[in-house]
Design a protein around this nucleic acid. Structure first.
Lengths: 144, 144
DNA sequence: TTCTATGCAAAAGCTTTGCAAATCA
DNA sequence: TGATTTGCAAAGCTTTTGCATAGAA
């Protein structure tokens, strides 16, 4: 039995003396309609485009709650931009990125996962999210 | 023959029509005196404590230049905090970052390097730089 | 009915920028 | 000398907060 994100959020709110308002409902649905990561300001624009003109404060507050509820995760890029995306429990984010053509490859090697899990265990760290990015030149671009 | 960070920065500045001022010199020396990562505001305080009272703008501008020169690197924690640290050319930067207190641990495990090198070799990718960040809760914060 | 959530505007952090004066090459 | 850099203050951005009102339970 799998709960919908909205249901999960509702459970979280019940447990934490929160209330499920129409704004929160709409925000949750919007977030889980987006496959990709998103920035808050863009997200607000998307809501606006659908005539869901909630205040910035409400959107920020709801995103914070979704984060606390563990339904979404935050990604901080090196350029200072902050993204959010719905949390995929079974998917890590390992990428190989070509500096020349921008092509992105996914790494699928669970020996990395094992090593990292062991490391975390050793230092008593409880991992929640990982990001592994390798930058360089892909085969084709290297030949040139 | 190994160049000092200051010399490298000087070279970078010459190539980019920049000038090596006394402020920049002092900032570079301070940065390379710090073994750990640092936040800009703390860094400014450290400079102040040594009576190097440069304007915030100058510090930010110099850090930006050091970043462009490839002498330091930026780390963004999920709680929004931004850290910098000097770049060790012979060492990859794998970090474990606590989302609660912001503490950063370094991973030293060259088996990761081997796996990644193998992976790159397999797909014909020539790696230049990698960043591996694990976010979660450190021992102390998890207990709370 | 009671307490949380919302919207607004103001404030808070952090970082960047415009401009005149200072400094480097 | 001529161009970049500095310091200051102001402005920009993103995010948070105080407060009165609206709304959920």
């Amino acid at each position: 039995m799998k709960l919908t994100p909205l249901k999960k959020f509702e459970n979280y709110l019940v447990e934490n003396e929160g209330r499920l308002t129409s704004q929160k409902k709409a925000i949750v649905q919007e977030v889980f309609n987006i496959d990709d990561h998103f920035e808050v300001e863009n997200f607000i624009d998307m809501l606006r485009a659908e005539d869901k003109k909630f205040s910035r404060a409400t959107v920020y507050r709801t995103i914070k709650q979704l984060l606390e509820a563990g339904l979404i995760q935050k990604i901080s890029a090196l350029n200072g931009k902050v993204f959010y995306e719905r949390k995929m429990t079974n998917k890590e984010h390992d990428h190989v990125i070509c500096n020349s053509c921008g092509e992105i490859y996914e790494i699928n090697d669970n020996s990395i996962q094992k090593i990292l899990d062991n490391y975390c265990k050793d230092i008593g760290f409880r991992p929640e999210y990982r990001s592994l990015h390798i930058y360089g030149l892909c085969k084709a671009c290297f030949k040139r």
